[in-house]
């Protein structure tokens, strides 16, 4: 591996736009779920994506994983992975290349992992279907590797003989994590893996993700609307609002000194020990992505909104090293240029 490859980001997302294009009864509608998103993920890093429901988090990572189906379409931008110095452009690569990358280099822990296992087949079959072709060993040796992997994750290898409905929800989630990491991929996308679990199981699942990430040294995108989980797990954090990235930076700094007014409100909404003052909610609702407001998409709810916010979209500007914000209140328009 060359020096350049090791320092280059594992994932580079450039000006990505992914819209849902719906056309029914002669009426065309466009839902701009991901609009002009740029960010990168470094090697051995956990990158958190936060934002409320329907802000485009899941669409963004679906697009990154090239798992898009009509009506979702990529309108512009690029997603380039760098697997051990070999760049893979997910939008341009042919089906075979993408299929070869899946699970070996890029795996996925899904939202609602409760039902990601085929209900009519044993757990063992899932490991065979997903990972067998990548490991390149004969069946018994392959199963030995799977058993050793399960044991390393404190799972009983006997679960291989079980059907998914015989396992509890937390157990299924852990099996899904084991399945996603058995090929030791460079990149893992985790889409709300802990959302359906109670906090105790959540804690052990998070510990498991952290341990396995540390062990195999992969990069991780972790998506959840739960800021407490982000604070606990992620190295860097990106905040999304209405299909756009509005702020990005190291997790601790964002929690300590949020810049964007939306982030400020998010962080202020977190409970703090000793603080008994009632929490104020943010006025209004997130905009419809089919008809987003002009200018900054946050301006109808923003306490700092200025005239320019209603007409122009604020660009992402690096305000401090590693710290980017898209807000005219933080970077006045004159300075941004």
């Amino acid at each position: 591996m060359s020096a350049a490859a090791s320092t280059a980001p594992v994932l580079q997302v450039e000006a990505l736009r992914a819209y849902y294009k719906i056309s029914s009864f002669g009426l065309d509608r466009e839902v701009r779920a991901v609009d002009d998103v740029t960010f990168h993920v470094n090697a051995n890093e956990i990158y958190g994506l936060a934002g409320e429901s329907s802000c485009g988090k899941t669409t963004l990572i679906r697009t990154i994983a090239a798992a898009i189906k009509p009506p979702l379409r990529v309108v512009g931008g690029s997603v380039v992975f760098n697997f051990a110095g070999r760049p893979v452009d997910m939008q341009k690569a042919d089906d075979e290349t993408v299929a070869a990358v899946r699970w070996k280099h890029l795996s996925y822990i899904m939202q609602g992992s409760m039902s990601v296992l085929n209900p009519v087949r044993r757990v063992e079959r899932a490991f065979v279907d997903f990972a067998f072709r990548h490991i390149g060993k004969r069946k018994p040796e392959f199963l030995d590797i799977v058993r050793a992997h399960l044991q390393r994750l404190d799972l009983n290898p006997d679960i291989l003989a079980a059907y998914p409905h015989q396992l509890s929800g937390g157990m299924r989630q852990r099996v899904a994590i084991a399945l996603a990491t058995v090929c030791r991929p460079e990149f893992i996308i985790a889409d709300e893996p802990t959302t359906a679990l109670d906090v105790i199981v959540q804690n052990s699942v998070l510990a498991m993700i952290r341990d396995v990430q540390k062990e195999i040294g992969s990069s991780l995108i972790f998506v959840t609307h739960d800021l407490a989980v982000h604070a606990n797990l992620c190295h860097r954090l990106g905040i999304m609002y209405a299909g756009r990235l509005v702020e990005e930076g190291p997790t601790a700094e964002i929690f300590k000194a949020p810049k964007h007014p939306y982030t400020t409100h998010l962080v202020a909404s977190l409970p703090r020990i000793g603080n008994t003052a009632p929490k104020k909610g943010l006025e209004g609702t997130p905009p419809s992505l089919a008809a987003p407001p002009p200018g900054c998409r946050f301006h109808p709810r923003c306490p700092l909104a200025m005239d320019i916010c209603r007409t122009q979209n604020p660009p992402m500007v690096e305000v401090l090293p590693g710290r980017r914000v898209a807000c005219f209140a933080v970077t006045p328009p004159g300075r941004a240029a």
Partner: peptide
């Protein structure tokens, strides 16, 4: 549209295998 089918597609599982063991098998019951 079930999660296990989407997941198998994300996992790059062979299309014919998905059709036979995931989609058809669950629909046949």
């Amino acid at each position: 549209t079930e999660d296990y089918v989407t997941y198998a597609e994300l996992g790059g599982v062979d299309r014919r295998r998905i059709l036979a063991s995931y989609v058809m098998r669950n629909s046949l019951v």
